[in-house]
Amino acid sequence: MESTDIGLWGVPLAILGGAIRVSTPFIFVSLGETITERSGRINLGLEGILVFGAMTAYAVAVMTGSPWLGVLAASATGAAFGLFHGWICKFPKVNDIAIGIALMLFGSGLAFFFGKPFIQPSAPDLPAIPLGGWSNIPQVQAALNINVLFIIGAALAVFLWWAFKNTRAGLIVRVVGDSSDAARAMGLNPDTVRLLSTGVGGALAAIGGAYLSLYYPGSWSEGVSSGQGLMAVALVIFARWNPLGCFAAALLFGGAGALGPALQSVGVTQGYYLFYAAPYILTLVIMIMTSSPGRSLAGAPGELSITK
């Protein structure tokens, strides 16, 4: 192994690397939830779907030897969970927030249950693209070893941002999310649109899980997720239902999360719990600074139970 002493430069580099490495699950889950919430439904159960997706992807990758089949299988199960959530919430008086919480237990429980035989075996990792070849510093090369899913996630964010504004499907989702009555007046069936949006949201969340188990940290265990799914749902509100905002929020969260280990690695060793809380503190501070009565919920879908 070649090595170069980079000293304090390790901190910004770790934040960059961390942003790229850690953010991907947040990107996929929050983009998925953006689609769901834009249609007027909230799915707090994405944490459970993410965990189940992580397990499925790993299991399928172990059994078939193909990580991409794992991702595919994960997204299929995620879609199934999402459609289930969408279907059950279409009944009157059923509370989507509460069902989401129950789904979180259900998804994690099933994943832990069926994931037992896959804790020991190793699965093939998803490939990464080395974009750091221009540098001869190994740390930079490592930080710029970018996983394909991250790139897909970034492209998806841009695409969704464009699609919500410029496509008929985007318009339909937005109309349904803003007012069921208006949607019905346009001849749309809000339940169907929400059902599909929740299904897509679930599929994306499960891909986020696949990234966790197949790339970073890259193994299946019951502790693979430390609440990324739940946090990503919260980040959607932070990003004000804007796909580009989700991408930025995910990067911010991933980068800030790298601060704690990086500071310790250069010798700043006191108070690490507080450094570990950096992503949460930073997000909260930004939210407080950018909110004010009146304009805070600009962009909030009118039918969303959590912001009504």
Binding site: A14, S221, A258, P261, Y276
Partner: peptide
């Protein structure tokens, strides 16, 4: 898991 991976990367860096 994620923090352990980050810590390992920070050490190698």
């Amino acid at each position: 898991a994620v923090k352990e991976a980050e810590a390992t990367n920070a050490l190698v860096d």
